[in-house]
């Protein structure tokens, strides 16, 4: 399936918002609490229909897609992902193959092995989830999404529970996937992460689109002050900026 764009036109909860997302880009969705970031991501992932308007995937309306077809195209990593049973890393990653019913086992195994290798989990393949560190767990869950082989990677605050080094490592993984041609859409709370690592930033405020464009413009000091309500300025070099607040 070839996907070029992911359109969204949602009204009401997300007011009059139209965005078009592109493969090969890392797009960050930012905004204060209650801005509608997770709602937007959930609509884009096809998990909930917009109140009005439509979401399209490669020109096709999302609502008309078979759930498994959609699942093969869009990998979704929820906020604070849970793992109910103490699976091994390999078995957990294999859950990513569930949308591929009827595909031969050998093909599935290749995809699982590639995902495990891509996330550098070979040594941990047989380890149980309960024995993993936070960073290893995040990589395993990411490998689960990659095992599906989706064109799009959507993640809701994937860095929330990670320390600095693990957050940077996971962001690097997302970047690699974008370079490989996947469309990456991340809900990010940390504006500096968005500024330094995204190709494009969508800023929402109370369900409205406030800014959409390159990070330097979409997350300009004036936008941050207007939307987040606190005076701020960016310091440092492009690509390594920090936000000074107050």
């Amino acid at each position: 399936m070839s996907l070029q764009t992911l359109d969204l036109g949602v009204k009401d909860r997300i007011a009059d918002l139209t965005v078009m997302l592109h493969l090969g880009e890392v797009t960050a969705i930012c905004g204060p609490n209650g801005a509608g970031k997770s709602t937007l991501l959930s609509c884009l992932a096809g998990l909930q229909p917009p109140d009005r308007g439509h979401v399209a995937l490669g020109g096709q309306p999302m609502a008309g897609l078979h759930p498994e077809t959609r699942a093969r195209a869009i990998g979704y990593l929820p906020q604070a992902p849970e793992v109910a049973w103490d699976l091994s890393v390999e078995v957990l990653v294999s859950l990513g193959r569930l949308p591929w019913r009827g595909v031969p086992g050998s093909e599935a195994q290749v995809a699982i092995d590639e995902a495990i290798a891509a996330m550098d989990l070979d040594a941990l393949r047989h380890r149980r989830v309960s024995q993993l560190s936070g960073g290893e767990r995040a990589r395993t869950l990411m490998a689960r999404v990659l095992a599906t082989g989706p064109g799009w990677l959507l993640a809701d605050e994937p860095l929330a529970s990670l320390d600095l080094a693990h957050a940077a490592a996971l962001l690097a993984c997302f970047r690699r996937q974008a370079v490989l041609g996947r469309g990456v859409v991340l809900v990010l709370h940390d504006l500096a992460m968005a500024m330094n690592h995204a190709d494009r930033v969508i800023v929402l405020d109370r369900g409205r689109l406030v800014a959409d464009g390159a990070p330097e413009f979409a997350l300009g000091a004036d936008v941050v002050e207007r939307v987040w309500g606190c005076p701020a300025r960016w310091v440092g070099e492009p690509g390594a900026r920090a936000l000074s607040v107050g």
């Binding site: 959930s42 992932a45 096809g46 998990l47 078979h66 759930p67 498994e68 959609r70 699942a71 093969r72 869009i74 990998g75 979704y76 990593l77 929820p78 992902p81 849970e82 793992v83 109910a84 049973w85 699976l87 957990l92 859950l95 990513g96 569930l98 949308p99 019913r101 689960r144 599906t148």
Partner: peptide, 20 residues
Amino acid sequence: GRSLDALTLGEAAARSLGVD
């Protein structure tokens, strides 16, 4: 069974894996 496997990852992730 397959849907129950997907549910291991929570309801939202299960739906994203195509579970109805």
